[in-house]
Simulated assay, not measured.
Amino acid sequence: MRALPFHQVDVFSATPFKGNPLAVIAGADDFDDAKMQAIANWTNLSETTFLSRPQDAAADYRVRIFTPTRELPFAGHPTLGSCHVWLALGGQPKGREVIQECGAGLVRIKRDGARLAFAAPPLRRSGEVSAEMKAQLARALGIAEQDIRAAQWVDNGPGWVAVLLGSRSELLSLKHDVSVLPDQSLGVVAPWDPARDGGEVQFEVRAFMGRGGEDPVTGSLNASLAQWLIGAGRAPVRYVAAQGTVLGRAGRVHVAQDGETIWIGGDVATCIAGTITL
């Protein structure tokens, strides 16, 4: 038996317990898939990550990302949380940016003061949804089709399809029926009205996961939404998105386009730091 570094962090919030939790285990070089999956099932968080030495010489570290039931090639809050832990454990990047190796390839991460931001990965699927899919999305969200301002595929790994609504109040009142699209991860976004909602945030986001459940704050979804909204001229090149409101969270995702790169940033707070015995 041996003890390895174990951290539980809260991502996309400077205030502990208001963001999205993540478990991170370092020194997992000799873990097989079955062991990582078993641990992720045990932590029962939306994701658990495992840090090891990189296989690609260009990377600073490698991360494997597991939900309680499967491995993901990429996810946003595990990217920022894993980088936060790697740095806290003394990791030193080879260059100005941290380069993370994951199932989706190499991901660039930069430090902006205390905040971390990752470069949005390319979309694997984009474009408008079919008329049949739009009708299914409306049924899944319990709304009329005419309430959908736009709907797009915005898949950067987890399979996201996105819906744009007209107001924050519409979004917060949604009741998701997972039985309509049981295996489809679905993101919904709506603008804040400065007069009614305030001016510190520009968009509200909700993420309904395939096979049920709502995610508190979702980096991969916000990355793909930003690529769509900014690219279509529906959002400015810098904005803040709120997520997790209906779950009692206060997630804040900081989006900024710099040249051809869209950066997805957020604060990370360490809640637990210790060891796990294996």
Rank of each mutant, 00 (worst) to 15 (best):
K110F: 05
E260Y: 01
R115H: 08
H84P: 03
L225V: 05
G90V: 05
S179N: 12
P122I: 04
A104E: 03
S82Y: 04
H77I: 05
F6D: 02
A75H: 09
D193G: 05
A250K: 15
P5L: 11
W153I: 04
A195C: 03
G103F: 12
V237R: 14
D33Q: 14
H84T: 01
L4G: 01
G198Y: 09
V154F: 09
A14P: 14
G166P: 01
G19Y: 01
Q202I: 05
P68V: 10
L278S: 00
T69E: 07
H7R: 13
A223C: 10
G198R: 08
T69N: 07
A269Y: 10
N222L: 01
A269K: 08
A140F: 08
W42N: 00
E101G: 00
L229T: 10
W160M: 08
L221I: 04
F66G: 08
Q243W: 07
T43C: 05
H77Y: 06
S220T: 05
G210T: 03
L72E: 11
G259H: 09
E128F: 07
V268H: 04
Q136W: 00
N41Q: 13
V255H: 12
R96L: 04
D60R: 14
E132H: 14
L116K: 11
R249T: 00
S167L: 04
L186E: 01
L137N: 04
G198H: 07
K94D: 00
W228H: 11
A131N: 14
T270P: 05
Q8S: 03
Y239R: 15
F66Y: 14
R70S: 10
C271Q: 11
A241L: 08
M36V: 00
Q8D: 00
G265V: 01
D10A: 11
P73K: 08
